[in-house]
Simulated scan of single mutants.
Amino acid sequence: MVLRRALYESWQMECCGRTFSVGDEVTWQVMPMESDDMRTWGWDEEEYAGLLRVEHHSDGWPTATGRVRAIHLVHQEYAETAPGSRSFTPVPGRRTLEPVDSCPKWFGCGEPADGPGPRRRRNTDGVLVTLDVTDLPEAVPGRGHRRQPSVTSAMPAAPPREPRDRRRGRRGQ
Rank of each mutant, 00 (worst) to 15 (best):
M1R: 02
V2C: 00
L3K: 05
R5Y: 04
Y8K: 00
W11D: 03
Q12E: 10
Q12F: 02
Q12I: 08
G17F: 03
R18F: 04
S21Q: 07
G23T: 02
G23S: 10
G23Y: 01
E25V: 13
V26P: 02
V26W: 03
T27S: 13
M31F: 00
M31L: 03
M31P: 00
M31C: 03
S35Q: 05
D37K: 09
R39W: 04
T40N: 03
T40I: 06
W43Y: 15
W43M: 09
W43V: 09
D44M: 02
A49M: 08
G50L: 03
G50P: 06
L52V: 04
L52T: 08
R53E: 10
E55M: 10
H56K: 05
H56F: 15
H56V: 05
H57P: 00
D59A: 14
W61I: 00
W61T: 02
G66L: 08
R67E: 15
R67V: 15
V68N: 06
V68M: 05
A70I: 02
I71D: 05
I71N: 03
Y78P: 03
T81W: 01
S87I: 15
T89M: 14
R94N: 10
R95T: 15
R95S: 15
P99S: 15
S102K: 13
C103T: 15
W106E: 13
F107H: 12
G108T: 14
C109E: 10
C109M: 13
G110P: 09
E111K: 14
P112N: 10
D114Y: 06
T124R: 11
D125I: 13
G126L: 04
L128P: 07
L128Q: 10
L131F: 11
L131C: 08
D132H: 10
L136R: 08
E138V: 02
G142V: 12
R143P: 01
G144Y: 08
R146G: 07
P149Q: 06
V151W: 04
S153F: 01
A154M: 03
A154S: 13
A157S: 14
A158N: 08
P163M: 06
D165P: 03
R167A: 14
R168V: 07
R170T: 09
